[in-house]
Amino acid sequence: MTRIYKHRLFWPVVALAALLLACTLKRPDILGISVLDGHLFGAPIDILRNSAPLLLVSLGMTLVIATRGIDLSVGATVAIAGAVALTFIAGSHDPGSLGTALGAVVVALGLCLVLGGFNGFLVSGLGIQPIIATLILMTAGRGVAMLITGGQITTVNSAPFAALASGFLLGLPVAALIAYGVFIVIALLVRRTALGMLLEAVGINPDASRLAGVKSKTLVFTVYTLCGALAGLAGLIFASNTMAADANNAGLFIELDAILAVVIGGTSLAGGKFNLGGTLVGVLIITTLNLTVTVLGISPLVTPMFKAIVVIAVTLMMSPRLRGMLAGLRERRRYQEVNA
């Protein structure tokens, strides 16, 4: 029992369960899944689908954070991806064709790779602090997205592109399939290859890693590029959901939600050891929170406050000091010293 309590995902999972419980108390049938036209429907499926963009962004963010970094620009990248894709479709001769949709996806993802690479270059090539290096694109990015759409909210009609968010495959939402598919691929990639270990080594001790022959710069560059591409993919799902490129609001604050998800999942912002499973739990908490707030009949405008409460609760519960206090260590001073 005490071991479960000590597991680093204990409190996050408790939080998730509490949110779901709150939902069922209000509406006992909410967690049911029904089949309609061969597609699955219901709140759990909604959560899966709604969590797709955040999961993609958080995945990239986790890897970036593992290297002692942070990427503030993902929200802007989301906006740019949507703007590029929809502007591409709007400008093509045959907006409804599959080829156009694919073209839009390729162009948008390509650009996002470049943007991620730009961040990666600033951080690994020029050695600029990640928080400020990515602040640049965060600030300028939405301006760039506006530039692409010409300040309009571009709306298009393209069935193949719309399927990205609203389509179903094998009874499941396409968006969820993409995001969770990517999650599984990346999870396998980092743990079955040496990528995970090398990223952690770079995050824990960059100097030692360099002397051990780890290509730190290349690795760091790669994760920022990957993070950009994943944000781009998230942006495509966003854009496909609304079929309107809203440069101002697409992916607004998603970087903050993603960072929250990572932190809730038990990966330290100080870098090093990372936990993709934890990030998944964090993403689910944040997505479920939106549902819970709606179900409880609270104005969605107040959602940020509940997010704050979850974050404060989870981070405090994970803080060594509070754990120490809870464990009944009366002599706080002494504890500090051991850690000092």
């Binding site: 290859t193 040496a194 270990m197 780890v214 690795l219």
Partner: peptide, 29 residues
């Protein structure tokens, strides 16, 4: 401490770090 030990990795991971770094991340030992 500063340039050798990767503290939060295990002993085993620390031992194979140099070897693995030379192989690159795509070819895990």
């Amino acid at each position: 401490k500063g340039e050798g030990v990767v503290g939060e990795l295990t002993v085993a991971e620390n031992i194979i770090l140099g070897l693995q770094a030379a192989r690159g991340w795509m070819r895990p030992l």
